[in-house]
Design a binder for these strands. Structure first.
Ligand SMILES: [Mn+2]
Ligand SMILES: [Mn+2]
Ligand SMILES: [Mn+2]
Ligand SMILES: [Mn+2]
Lengths: 158, 158
DNA sequence: AACAAAATGTAGCATAAGCTACGGATAATG
DNA sequence: CATTATCCGTAGCTTATGCTACATTTTGTT
């Protein structure tokens, strides 16, 4: 429902971009902010499915505490978010049991991990040291649209 | 106070990065997420001082409603945030009066606008179309550290 | 000056994401 | 098998950012 609301806003703004009347330079200027807010709303889900996939790959299972240490937050914060991602059909979770990805979550994780890998490799190819690239890519990844992602790939393998 | 807390966490993690014991690969991995959360906490302030500077430059004054239209949010959201930024000495504001930048806010705005301009120019130089570059740079700018910013500048003017 | 319109503030609600404190469940160890 | 340690859930608090509805102030127009 949060998603529906956000999408309706974007659709409404699309119409403003098409029909070109008088004072919608302001409207058009607001579109990047709306889209950025949308992307921030997805950010937690993206980081969590990515982390679950990585942790399972590394250690065989993913516990709530693994995620808490991964993100440096309390286990309570993780529990609540896991519950929401379960409602969104991205994760399986039962009380006191390890967390796992649903098929939908696994597909999502695959896309997100690929994009993150491209962004990280791109920054390093650009000459950024690994430590800075790891930090910056952790935030940048969520704001890289398809066009920018394609451009980064072109830069990496010409 | 939120800032002090966040900084104390970062300092604490620094020590973990220096002293290399056993299970702090997990700790080290959590640093990018902590720093990204920090950057998100600054994001609103950055976007607002930037917007205030732009709007004043374009139209002579910046009203609450100008900001509301700029960001596509309600004037109530703007009012509350302006109040906080006033507490942080970034903005001047009196009831029913236009908003202005403090000297501190103006310096901040200068840095933020320059960084945003570099990121936007960089994406376009990379081959991203203007519309996508505008959208993506609006989010990416807040996650570009000094090293990445320097690398982008090198790419732009060699 | 009076009235209407526009801008701004206030009250009250929602959701997301942090936290501590405490209690219950599971797992490891004797 | 009993005990302890670890893990996890729940209750309750906080801050940030969205919203609508309504009140107030300022501004513009008869
Ligand atoms: Mn990631
Ligand atoms: Mn991330
Ligand atoms: Mn921005
Ligand atoms: Mn971001």
């Amino acid at each position: 429902m949060a998603t529906e609301y956000a999408e309706s806003i974007l659709l409404w703004q699309q119409t403003f971009l098409i029909g070109g009347c008088l004072k919608e330079k302001v409207k058009a200027r607001s579109v990047p902010f709306s889209k950025t807010r949308n992307r921030h709303a997805n950010e937690t889900a993206e980081d969590y499915v990515e982390a679950v996939a990585e942790i399972i790959e590394e250690s065989g299972e993913c516990r709530v505490l693994d995620l808490a240490r991964h993100f440096n937050v309390s286990h309570v914060t993780v529990s609540r978010i896991v519950k929401r991602l379960q409602d969104q059909q991205l994760l399986y979770s039962q009380p006191y049991r390890p967390v796992d990805l649903t098929p939908k979550g696994a597909k999502f994780a695959k896309r997100v991990r690929e994009r993150h890998a491209v962004v990280l490799a791109f920054l390093m190819a650009l000459g950024v040291d690994k430590s800075s690239a790891q930090i910056d890519s952790e935030g940048i990844e969520h704001h890289v649209g398809p066009k920018t992602l394609a451009a980064m790939k072109r830069f990496l393998e010409p």
